[in-house]
């Protein structure tokens, strides 16, 4: 070791017991992830689209419900419509605030996948993992930020939609109060479903590491799979039974304002969707910890 050739030992820093300065902690990683989320344009665009879509769909549905109400005020027409299986407007109005949830899921699941998979696509993940070599805090911070954003967007949109729908519904005397049965839970859970769905989707994005693949897989499981099951499994009892445990079914029950006989209630629905999200989250954390970046 030719340390004698080292110039200027006076400049040599004391080591190794020198204090390097502040280190990594979860609060700092959260701040870093917040900067990352807010400094790419896709986040802002997708969030704006989600709010507009969710509120817009609720307003449209409220408007449409008033027509249904008018049609049914004619007793003859009402009997005919009931025979065709049309719902009673009074039964469905309370679902209006969260009626844009399907579109909200589509967009927020996409955003969740994009946020993590784009790090792999651009190579940013290597910078992230060099700064936070334990890896898990970086992923958890991103998940937490996205879940909170999703909750606020979901619950906020539903609340805005509630207030926009009331004057429209009031004309037909269909308006309802925030304190009415299940309404507040419906609004809050619209946010909760989006938060759990974003964890679900971001975990898939973390495992697949590819934006297109992650979006297709998440949307496939959340929105297409229930349709396929409904079409092909409706006659088979065990399929119907098992379908209650699909993540999408859990989300549906979470925002239900009336619970059918034998169906899961809101909390059981939350266990189903939350269970899937937690399972995928844990798997994605373990796999990321072990894989090369």
């Amino acid at each position: 070791m030719a340390t004698s050739t080292t110039p200027a030992p006076a400049l040599q820093r004391p080591r190794p017991d020198r204090n390097p300065g502040p280190g990594v902690n979860f609060g700092r990683v959260l701040k870093s992830e917040w900067i990352k989320v807010t400094t790419v344009p896709s986040t802002v665009i997708l969030i704006a689209c989600t709010v507009v879509l969710m509120v817009g769909i609720s307003a449209l549905l409220a408007w449409q419900t008033t027509f249904l109400f008018e049609a049914q005020s004619d007793p003859e027409m009402a009997a005919q419509m009931q025979a065709q299986g049309a719902p009673d407007p009074n039964d469905i109005v309370r679902d209006i605030p969260g009626s844009g949830l399907t579109f909200g899921q589509l967009l927020m699941a996409s955003l969740a996948v994009v946020l993590i998979a784009s790090e792999w696509a651009t190579g940013m993940i290597r910078s992230t993992m060099v700064a936070v070599p334990r890896r898990t805090p970086a992923l958890l911070a991103k998940q937490l930020i996205m879940a909170v954003i999703s909750f606020v967007i979901g619950a906020g949109s539903a609340l805005i939609a509630y207030f926009i729908a009331q004057p429209i519904l009031a004309g037909s005397d269909l308006d309802f109060g925030l304190g009415d049965d299940g309404v507040l839970l419906h609004i809050v859970n619209t946010g909760s479903v989006l938060a759990l769905v974003s964890i679900f989707a971001m975990s898939i994005g973390t495992l697949i590491r590819n934006t297109a693949g992650g979006v297709v897989t998440s949307i496939g499981i959340l929105l297409v799979l229930p349709i396929v099951v409904a079409i092909f499994g409706s006659g088979t009892e065990w399929v119907v039974d098992a379908a209650r445990f699909l993540p999408s079914s859990g989300g549906e029950q979470m925002v239900a304002t009336t619970i059918a006989d034998g169906a899961f209630n809101q909390w059981q629905g939350a266990l189903v969707l939350g269970g899937w999200s937690l399972l995928l989250l844990v798997v994605s954390l373990i796999v990321t910890k072990k894989r090369d970046v």
């Binding site: 300065g21 502040p22 280190g23 990594v24 700092r28 990683v29 701040k31 870093s32 992830e33 900067i35 990352k36 400094t39 790419v40 344009p41 896709s42 784009s118 790090e119 651009t122 190579g123 940013m124 993940i125 290597r126 910078s127 060099v130 700064a131 936070v132």
Partner: peptide
């Protein structure tokens, strides 16, 4: 470490990239 000059999100500015990296260590 400079391992790979492309380890940066292409849609983010250089300043914001460095700010996000710096934030992890205060």
């Amino acid at each position: 470490a400079l391992l790979d000059a492309k380890a940066v999100h292409t849609k983010r500015s250089a300043y914001n990239h460095l700010r996000a990296m710096a934030a992890t260590h205060g």
